[in-house]
Simulated assay, not measured.
Amino acid sequence: MDRLLRGEIPPGGKCDIKTLAGEAAVDRTAFYGTRPYSHLRVEFARRLQALQQAGDIPDPREAQITRLKTENAKLRERLDRSKQTIDELTDFRTQALARLAAQHEVITWLREAAAGKSRVRRLPDPRTKVIGSCS
């Protein structure tokens, strides 16, 4: 029992009653009910639980499983935050494009309104090349 609780797990075993019975060369059923080793099962479970509550997990596989579950939970939280950020940015982009389209409509309307006035002179389109006599 002490070896298992120290983390000396035999190959293919775990820190459990089945492995304890195998290491003691006793039938596993002897640890249950009113059988001769039932008090050892209770003691083993109590000591194992005390170790786990203290943060010490004697079975390296169990420790790895616990670590991976924690890491998985953190990654899921990070993924959820990323999805939320993407949704917020997509909404912002949609609103910005709508505002730009509305501003373009206003500018177009103002240009058309200004074209009808004789006192307003249109500037050349900056996208066209001005051919001048500067050589």
Rank of each mutant, 00 (worst) to 15 (best):
residue 2 D to Y: 10
residue 2 D to F: 07
residue 3 R to G: 01
residue 3 R to N: 14
residue 3 R to H: 08
residue 4 L to P: 06
residue 4 L to M: 11
residue 4 L to Q: 04
residue 5 L to P: 00
residue 5 L to Y: 05
residue 6 R to W: 05
residue 6 R to I: 02
residue 7 G to M: 10
residue 7 G to E: 01
residue 9 I to S: 02
residue 9 I to E: 07
residue 10 P to G: 10
residue 10 P to V: 01
residue 12 G to P: 11
residue 12 G to F: 06
residue 12 G to L: 07
residue 13 G to R: 05
residue 14 K to R: 15
residue 15 C to S: 05
residue 15 C to Q: 07
residue 16 D to R: 08
residue 16 D to H: 12
residue 18 K to H: 13
residue 19 T to H: 14
residue 21 A to M: 07
residue 22 G to D: 06
residue 23 E to F: 10
residue 23 E to L: 14
residue 23 E to Q: 14
residue 24 A to R: 09
residue 25 A to G: 06
residue 25 A to Q: 13
residue 25 A to Y: 08
residue 26 V to K: 06
residue 27 D to L: 07
residue 27 D to P: 09
residue 27 D to A: 09
residue 27 D to H: 10
residue 27 D to F: 03
residue 28 R to V: 01
residue 29 T to R: 15
residue 29 T to N: 13
residue 32 Y to R: 12
residue 32 Y to P: 00
residue 33 G to P: 14
residue 33 G to H: 14
residue 33 G to V: 11
residue 33 G to Q: 07
residue 33 G to N: 08
residue 33 G to T: 07
residue 36 P to E: 15
residue 37 Y to T: 00
residue 37 Y to N: 11
residue 37 Y to F: 15
residue 38 S to W: 14
residue 38 S to T: 13
residue 39 H to K: 04
residue 39 H to T: 08
residue 39 H to M: 11
residue 40 L to F: 09
residue 40 L to G: 08
residue 42 V to H: 13
residue 42 V to E: 14
residue 43 E to L: 14
residue 43 E to R: 08
residue 43 E to N: 11
residue 44 F to M: 11
residue 44 F to L: 06
residue 45 A to W: 04
residue 45 A to P: 02
residue 46 R to D: 13
residue 46 R to Y: 13
residue 47 R to N: 04
residue 48 L to R: 05
residue 48 L to C: 04
